[in-house]
């Protein structure tokens, strides 16, 4: 694996695969590779695809990629599936729904395990997205773990967020609740051949009518992704969102906001490591014991820990 970054930059897909592994595993080489290739990221249109388990995210991602290929765009796909909280193992099954793309040289599919990250993504997701972008794909599609009401991290990773909904999964009060619906730039009603699709569309429209007038109104697109229906409209809606960010001069702000979030969360992780590294186990055990015995409240205990590092 000599000159792996050179091979990566030369378009070697095996080098891409290996670089992703190093970065995903947070090895020192991985950090080095990322430093070298990071300046080349940021050019792709990154699209997050989220929604509940079984909503059809993988099939939709596959169908969307197939349509992008018909438009001669290259596509990197990152599919995240959950890790077991007990054994830390995972079954990564997103490729099953993307078989038609398996041998297309303009497509690269990578599965990632959640590895305990909250929010429907994986700890190294931002680094891996940057890596796939830097390889030179026109689009990078990021499919989250099946997300419920509150997994909104994806909006901090990608440029455009697509929320996949299904008919028959709740009334309009569900949709009024705060959380995941607020991050959608495009709303998809998938399985639109099922009963209730039009009802869901009008519920979503009714909900959008309640939003403040100056807020951008997300497009609503009906799809049947098993048959590739609605993909044209979906791509147009996704492209419209990017155009909107560009023409309104919001793209830079969007990038800066995501970068701020990333830098702060990495800094937080580093500080936590430093605290743990400089606190003897006995000292931590003793603090925790006192909190358990209600001799000390958890905030004071945490402050005591933090003071060890900051002096």
């Amino acid at each position: 694996m000599e000159n792996i970054v050179e091979r990566f930059l030369g378009g070697d897909r095996r080098a891409l695969a290996r670089v992703i592994s190093r970065i995903e595993n947070e090895t020192p080489e991985g950090r080095e590779y990322l430093r070298e290739i990071y300046p080349r990221s940021g050019r792709a249109h990154t699209v997050g695809i989220t929604g509940s388990a079984g909503a059809g995210k993988s099939t939709l991602t596959g169908a969307l990629a197939a349509e992008l290929r018909r438009r001669e765009k290259t596509v990197g796909i990152i599919g995240v599936d959950p890790s077991s909280p007990f054994t830390h193992g995972a079954i990564l099954g997103d490729r099953i729904r993307m078989q038609d793309l398996a041998l297309d040289p303009g497509v690269f599919v990578r599965s990632m395990a959640g590895r305990g990250a909250l929010g429907g993504l994986a700890p190294a997701i931002n680094d891996v997205v940057a890596t796939v972008e830097a390889f030179g794909f026109d689009y990078v599609l990021v499919e989250t773990v099946g997300a419920g009401q509150d997994e909104v991290e994806i909006a901090g990773t990608t440029m455009t967020t697509v929320l996949v909904n299904n008919p028959g999964t709740g009334d309009d009060i569900q949709a009024m609740k705060a959380g995941i619906l607020e991050i959608a730039d495009v709303l998809v009603v998938n399985k639109a051949d099922h009963p209730g699709a039009d009802t869901l569309v009008s519920q979503l429209q009714g909900l959008l009518n309640l939003s403040p007038k100056d807020m951008r109104r997300p497009a609503i697109v009906k799809t049947v992704s098993t048959r590739g229906e609605g993909m044209d409209e979906l791509i147009d809606a996704v492209a419209d969102h990017r155009n909107y960010l560009e023409t309104e001069g919001l793209l830079e702000g969007h990038r800066a906001k995501n970068a701020r979030h990333q830098v702060l969360s990495i800094a937080r992780a580093i500080l936590l490591q430093r605290i743990q590294a400089s606190t003897p186990d006995e000292q931590l055990d003793e603090l925790v014991r006192r909190v358990g015995q209600r001799e000390l409240d958890p905030h004071s205990a945490a402050e005591e820990l933090a003071n060890i590092v900051s002096g």
Partner: peptide, 16 residues
């Protein structure tokens, strides 16, 4: 087999 390896802590890509 995929399930057994998952339960043993592996990340298993299952392609069907």
């Amino acid at each position: 087999v995929a399930r057994a390896l998952r339960d043993a802590g592996c990340e298993v890509i299952y392609t069907g």
